[in-house]
Computed example of a mutant assay.
Amino acid sequence: MTAFPRTPVLYVLLAIAAGLAAGPVRAQSAVADGQKLAFDRGKGNCLTCHVIKGGDLPGTIGPELKDIKSKYPDRNELVAIIFDETKRNPQTMMPPFGRNRILTEQEISAIVDFLQTL
């Protein structure tokens, strides 16, 4: 019986295969984390101002968050809005979540992942 050769190439191929298999799981996890943050009244707090499908007791100050991927095909634009909408619209009521360190870059990215599923 012949054993698999233990070469660096084999390890690299196994690592790539493992990464590809984990990709969808990580993406689903980011979406779930983003939804949790968006619905969290103490952290992301998106529901205070926005209607979001699946959210309880939404506000009506901001626009309804739907069809986000078609409205913002450039992911970076949505990240910038959440980070500091005052740069684009100085009169906005939306807090600058990133600038004020309410949300980390990773948390903003997770929220964007979630919003792009709406």
Rank of each mutant, 00 (worst) to 15 (best):
P58F: 09
A22N: 11
P24A: 04
I61T: 13
V112D: 01
P24R: 05
A27M: 11
G54V: 13
E85C: 06
T60K: 09
E64N: 14
Q28V: 13
F39Y: 08
L57V: 13
G59S: 09
C49A: 09
P96Q: 09
G23V: 06
E77T: 11
G55V: 06
R101F: 14
D84A: 13
N45D: 09
D74E: 13
T86Q: 09
G19C: 13
L47F: 10
L78D: 02
A38S: 07
K87Y: 10
K69V: 10
I111N: 01
L47A: 08
F39A: 04
V51W: 07
G59Y: 12
Q91R: 12
F83S: 05
Y72P: 01
C46D: 00
A32Y: 04
I111T: 01
D33E: 15
L20M: 11
E64F: 12
P73R: 05
S29T: 14
G59C: 09
V51T: 05
I108N: 00
I61N: 08
F39V: 05
K43R: 10
S70G: 07
V112Y: 00
K43T: 11
C46R: 01
I61S: 10
D33A: 12
Q28I: 05
R26F: 15
V79K: 01
G34P: 00
K43D: 05
L78H: 03
I82S: 00
I82M: 03
N76L: 14
G42W: 05
P95I: 07
C46G: 01
P63D: 07
S70T: 15
V79E: 04
P24L: 10
G44K: 03
K69I: 12
P95M: 07
P24Q: 09
G55E: 00
P96M: 10
Q106F: 11
S29P: 05
S29V: 14
R75A: 04
T86E: 02
C46L: 08
R41W: 10
E85P: 02
A80I: 06
Q28K: 15
S109C: 04
T92D: 03
G44A: 10
D74W: 05
P96E: 03
D113R: 02
I52Q: 03
T48V: 15
A27W: 08
A27D: 08
Q106I: 12
L57A: 14
V51C: 03
R88Y: 10
G34E: 02
F39S: 04
F83K: 08
K66R: 13
Q28E: 14
I52K: 02
V112H: 01
D56G: 06
T86D: 01
I108Y: 01
K71G: 07
G44N: 04
L37Y: 03
E77A: 14
G34Y: 00
E105P: 07
L65P: 03
M94T: 06
A21C: 12
V112N: 01
A38R: 01
P95N: 04
D56E: 14
I81P: 01
R26E: 04
K71I: 04
K43A: 09
T48W: 08
T104A: 09
A110T: 01
R101L: 15
